[in-house]
Simulated scan of single mutants.
Amino acid sequence: MTAASQPSPRAAAEAIPAASPCRPVAPRAPLDLPVVDILSAEKIFPDGTRGLAPIDLSIRRGEFVSLIGPSGCGKSTLLKLVANLFEPSDGRIVWWQGNFSRVGEAGRRLAFVFQDPTLMPWARVRTNVRLPLDLAGTDRAEADRRVDAALVQVGLDRKGRHFPGQLSGGMRMRVSIARAMVTEPDLLLMDEPFGALDEFTRNKLDDDLIRLSWEKKLTTVFVTHSLYEAVFLSTRIVVMAANPGRIFGQLELDEPLPRGDDFRNSDRFAALCRELSAMLHAASLESRGDR
């Protein structure tokens, strides 16, 4: 696994369900091979809590898949199964049609961005971004080249000498994203990274993320509580229900990429948000046993 992290247990890790009740899931081309196959994977925690019922889900190359649903529905648990931070209690996960031992090879790199940027406060931005390459023993000249490129990608090429405490919350999150991008990942996993930010900063980072994902042809799995963010970013949205966590439905979005304010302000965006809102309401009712 290629990690985007700092030296702590948590940060070191940085290192075809049922169709939507509102819209059928479009079939995929046969040659569009999956990056991740989740095959009847479930999670039961040591205290007996059933975090996830059996989940079946395929993530295809180049997709931007958002996971959304009520609190406690297992979004982050599912993401951590994909990251191999948790092992399923039953079922299995397949990465690039193989097991996790080959993740990290060329074309099979994975990076994880947590909600908390988890930066080293005593280290400058460049050092924070370079950390996963230092841990991997990457040649310093090559590491510096990648750091330069990653900082340009997130618009922080003039902030490399700063310390995290000198940056805004949005800039610190950009550093965390740069630390993931420096590993040149093929699969990017993000656990509600912008949830603590104000709406203006969040929208700007969403703009940057969708551009970056499109330019780099990333496969991205993104956890969010914001239906507006999910609609703006995603090519597919997976709606989850709780008690236990499970897939309730899916919503495909075939809007052109990259997207910007023209899409955010469009009637189409508003209609998709209404459709997703109805799905989330139904998922919440099912989670409470009201359906």
Score class of each variant (00 low, 15 high):
269 F>M: 13
227 L>Q: 14
275 E>S: 09
201 T>N: 06
266 S>V: 11
254 D>M: 06
219 T>D: 05
232 F>S: 09
251 L>S: 04
236 R>H: 13
196 A>I: 10
244 P>W: 10
223 V>A: 09
198 D>S: 12
209 L>R: 06
252 E>A: 15
236 R>V: 05
213 S>F: 00
219 T>E: 01
244 P>M: 10
278 A>G: 13
240 M>Q: 08
219 T>Q: 02
255 E>G: 02
253 L>D: 04
278 A>Y: 05
246 R>F: 10
207 D>Q: 11
270 A>I: 02
254 D>I: 03
252 E>S: 14
228 Y>M: 07
249 G>R: 13
236 R>G: 06
253 L>H: 09
251 L>K: 10
279 M>L: 09
227 L>H: 13
246 R>M: 06
277 S>V: 00
200 F>S: 07
237 I>E: 00
244 P>L: 12
238 V>P: 03
241 A>D: 06
239 V>W: 06
201 T>I: 15
218 L>P: 01
221 V>L: 14
262 D>I: 02
197 L>T: 12
277 S>E: 10
254 D>A: 15
257 L>R: 15
236 R>M: 07
235 T>H: 09
269 F>I: 02
227 L>C: 01
241 A>H: 04
251 L>G: 07
279 M>A: 05
223 V>G: 08
268 R>H: 10
233 L>H: 02
265 N>H: 11
215 E>L: 08
212 L>S: 07
218 L>R: 00
261 D>F: 05
214 W>V: 07
261 D>W: 03
195 G>L: 05
215 E>V: 00
237 I>T: 11
201 T>F: 08
210 I>H: 04
272 L>G: 00
272 L>A: 04
219 T>A: 04
219 T>G: 04
271 A>G: 02
216 K>S: 09
226 S>D: 13
252 E>N: 15
231 V>R: 07
266 S>Y: 06
253 L>N: 11
234 S>W: 08
217 K>M: 01
255 E>L: 11
276 L>E: 03
197 L>K: 04
198 D>M: 10
277 S>F: 03
240 M>R: 01
258 P>A: 02
219 T>P: 07
235 T>V: 09
256 P>K: 07
207 D>S: 08
252 E>H: 12
259 R>K: 07
203 N>Q: 15
275 E>Q: 15
254 D>G: 12
247 I>W: 03
264 R>I: 05
267 D>E: 14
223 V>N: 05
195 G>S: 15
241 A>P: 08
257 L>Q: 14
222 F>G: 06
222 F>Q: 06
203 N>I: 09
247 I>S: 13
199 E>V: 14
257 L>D: 02
212 L>Y: 02
261 D>S: 12
203 N>D: 13
276 L>S: 03
256 P>V: 02
